[in-house]
């Protein structure tokens, strides 16, 4: 871990690296405190891809923990409740859509790596469309559930169908926002192919998207098994 991290270190310590009591700009010690400012010259901090990637991993760890807790709740509630809830047909469609969307996102990333800007945009838009399609199919699935007499405030198991899909859908909506942000970045006039920042953002959004895909598969299997 240590070596990986030092390799992306900002190179701001050139010159006066000897440490200790270094003098300030005028040979005087840098004065002031955090409140009174001083010292900063508005220099650009070097972009650090690892900051973004580590943070995204941590965000995903937290999200996985939350869905894990909800899954445990569902399994425990299932022991008490034996009424089966039929799996809506639409949720099978959702599963197909989100699996394909992961593939299209992967293509978007690959085309960026291969410097194909147009293909990148195309695949991003495809992912966006599939993501929205997924959410619509989830809504249709809810209608199906309601028609079958499964309501939000029935027993814990039927609630979980709605709750898990709503929470996952909310998180996927965030993912759609992130993909949308990638599209906006792509359409900026100063957008450069294979820039480090573009790659980082694409990677980070990809991590999020694929994890949401994985969480859906997990929920789907859980709902399928414990019904």
């Amino acid at each position: 871990m240590a070596t990986m991290v030092t390799s992306t270190k900002r190179a701001t310590d050139k010159g006066m690296g000897s440490g200790g009591r270094f003098p300030g700009p005028n040979g005087k010690k840098p004065g002031g405190n955090g409140f009174h400012g001083g010292g900063s010259d508005g220099k650009k901090r070097k972009f650090s891809p690892w900051s973004y990637r580590i943070t995204m991993w941590m965000v995903l760890a937290a999200i996985v923990m939350m869905f894990g807790a909800l899954s445990v709740a569902y399994v425990m509630a299932s022991e008490e409740q034996r009424t089966p809830v039929p799996m809506p047909r639409m949720f099978f469609l959702s599963t197909g859509l989100i699996l394909v969307s992961s593939a299209t996102f992967h293509q978007a990333k690959k085309s960026l790596q291969e410097d194909r800007g147009r293909a990148h945009l195309r695949w991003l838009l495809a992912t966006l469309g599939l993501g929205i399609g997924f959410l619509l199919s989830q809504l249709a699935g809810w209608r199906e559930l309601a028609r079958a007499g499964v309501y939000f405030s029935g027993h814990p198991r039927s609630t979980f169908f709605y709750l898990a899909t709503a929470l996952h859908g909310g998180h996927l909506l965030g993912g759609i926002g992130l993909v949308f942000y990638l599209v906006i970045r792509r359409l900026r006039p100063l957008w450069q192919l294979s820039g480090e920042k573009n790659m980082t953002w694409t990677r980070v959004v990809g991590l999020y998207w694929h994890t949401m895909d994985g969480i859906w598969i997990w929920l789907f299997v859980l709902l399928l098994i414990f019904k």
Binding site: F22, P30, N33, G34, H36, G37, G38, G39
Partner: peptide, 14 residues
Amino acid sequence: ATPPPHDNFAGVLP
């Protein structure tokens, strides 16, 4: 410095 400047090390990281 005490208290530390706004960017902690007055522009030169130790």
